[in-house]
């Protein structure tokens, strides 16, 4: 018998994101934190929070 699929996917997703060089650690941290909230967090707040971590450089 199998266990619930969702935790398996999320656990693997977290590991893969952290090892992905094309996404910043700040974005991963913000994304996982906000998606951990009820209803996965507010879209606009999440977007602003991630955009804020992007800095001003080109």
């Amino acid at each position: 018998m199998s266990q619930d699929i969702t935790p398996r996917v999320l656990q693997l997703f977290k590991i893969r994101l952290k090892n992905n060089p094309n996404i910043s650690a700040e974005t991963v941290e913000t994304l996982l934190r906000e998606q951990g909230k009820n209803d996965f967090g507010d879209d606009d707040e999440l977007l602003d929070a991630v955009a804020e971590t992007m800095g001003d450089s080109e």
Binding site: I5, L12, R16, N20, T27, V50, A51, M54
Partner: peptide, 23 residues
Amino acid sequence: RFARAANEFEVAHETFLATRDDV
């Protein structure tokens, strides 16, 4: 900023899809 955010969200989306499909 938003262009980089869009790119990273897209990376996250593709990673999520690949992860879900693998599981």
